[in-house]
Amino acid sequence: MVLLEALSALSRDHRQAVIAIHVVGLSYAELSDALGVSVSTLRSRTFHGLRALRQHITSGEESDD
């Protein structure tokens, strides 16, 4: 549930990149072809999306203590 909540907090573009790359297993090149977005843009979206996920999850853990 925590992960789903964290994913829902991301922007659509960040969520789409994170899920496609890290859950579905697409390569950056495959996703780039599918979306018509450069690989460097997708890498940036994935990086920032993962960073936001980490922050959301760790902030939730701190409030549970």
Rank of each mutant, 00 (worst) to 15 (best):
M1A: 15
V2A: 11
L3A: 07
L4H: 12
E5Y: 07
E5C: 04
L7N: 03
A9Y: 04
A9G: 10
L10A: 02
S11E: 13
S11M: 06
R15D: 03
Q16A: 10
Q16L: 10
Q16Y: 08
Q16S: 09
A17Q: 00
V18W: 00
V18L: 04
V23W: 11
V23A: 15
V23C: 15
V24I: 15
V24W: 08
G25L: 11
S27H: 10
S27M: 08
S27E: 11
S27D: 09
A29K: 15
E30D: 12
A34S: 15
A34Q: 15
A34C: 13
L35M: 08
L35I: 05
G36T: 06
V37F: 05
V37E: 05
V37N: 04
S38M: 04
S38K: 15
S38Y: 02
S40A: 13
S40K: 15
T41S: 13
L42V: 06
L42R: 00
R43E: 05
S44K: 13
R45A: 02
F47W: 13
F47P: 00
F47E: 12
H48Q: 11
H48G: 03
H48S: 06
L50E: 13
L50I: 11
L50A: 07
R51W: 06
R51L: 12
A52M: 12
L53P: 00
L53V: 04
R54A: 14
Q55K: 10
H56Q: 08
H56K: 06
H56M: 04
T58M: 15
E61C: 10
E61M: 13
E62N: 07
E62P: 01
D64C: 05
D64I: 11
D65F: 08
